[in-house]
């Protein structure tokens, strides 16, 4: 009971942070609207990339246009959710360099909660709108029958994927404790994961699949549950495959803890 109460309290506090973030963003109306529109438009370029390719080819390794589009919409949604909620990790190098992490440490709350709360990126709604548009199109055009199991699969994929990208942002942030600066190579895993993820992972061959299972578990939130979603497999357990992110997230959390313990404050 007590744990549940604590959790509910943390969630309430988190949404208080979110509300302040949104209120802050609304102070700059023009900037907010332009950012949301920009986010919406940017993703169109990737969409057109897929669209034009399918004007030349009807299949990519057996996947149809609608199937790839569904995959892309899911990955885009996963990534946007992670960016919206875990933006605090993504911009963490600035937090450390400006010495703002000191303030986080003198408050009686978990560091993760405070870092996540410090930045909530409402503008990512633009990119989500794009993902929703594609969803709407795919749902109306594709032959996928939306059984309760498939809807569950979809929800699990979105949650697991958002968690996976969030965990990658957390590792990125943990490195800032040692370098005081963001390491751009991590973007290969985050932005790269999003760009590669627009096609089902098996089209890239064996090596990429191995990497996506053993190193960064993209496959458990994309390729495997997608097989169930597209009716290529009937194994209902694939719906819960995205839970495979949990051990990975736990390791990322340990990295973070270690980073915090090694924190050297900057400035006076």
């Amino acid at each position: 009971m007590k744990t549940i109460q604590k959790l509910a309290d943390a969630v309430r506090l988190y949404f208080h942070y979110v509300s302040l973030n949104v209120r802050s963003a609304m102070q700059y109306k023009a900037s907010l609207l332009l950012m949301i529109t920009g986010q919406l438009l940017v993703s169109f370029s990737t969409f057109f990339g897929i669209h034009f390719m399918f004007m030349r080819f009807s299949h990519v390794k057996g996947y149809t246009y609608e199937e790839v589009l569904l995959c892309f919409a899911i990955v885009l949604m996963q990534f946007s959710l992670a960016e919206m909620f875990a933006r605090g990790f993504d911009t963490f190098s600035g937090t450390v360099r400006r010495g703002e992490f000191d303030r986080i440490l003198v408050r009686p709350r978990s560091t993760v909660l405070q870092v996540l709360g410090s930045r909530f990126e409402i503008t990512r709604i633009g990119r989500m709108a794009q993902a929703c548009l594609m969803f709407a199109y795919v749902v109306s055009a594709s032959p996928v029958a939306w059984t309760p199991l498939r809807v569950t699969t979809l929800a699990m994929m979105l949650l697991g994927g958002a968690m996976l990208f969030g965990a990658l942002f957390q590792v990125y942030a943990s490195l800032c404790f040692f370098t005081l600066d963001g390491l751009e190579f991590m973007n290969v895993l985050t932005d790269g994961g999003r760009e590669y993820g627009k096609y089902p992972l098996d089209i890239y061959g064996k090596r990429v699949m191995q990497f996506s299972i053993a190193v960064v578990p993209y496959a458990v939130v994309q390729y495997y549950p997608l097989q169930l979603l597209l009716g290529r497999s009937a194994n209902p357990w694939l719906a819960f495959c995205p839970l495979g992110v949990l051990p990975f997230a736990a390791i990322c959390q340990l990295c973070w803890r270690y980073g915090v313990s090694r924190y050297k404050s900057a400035g006076s």
Partner: peptide, 19 residues
């Protein structure tokens, strides 16, 4: 520990800038 202390850093703000 931090529940029972207060810290003011003269050179840094803890207030939200825009609200």
């Amino acid at each position: 520990h931090v529940k029972s202390i207060g810290v003011v850093f003269g050179q840094r703000s803890q207030l939200w800038w825009d609200i």
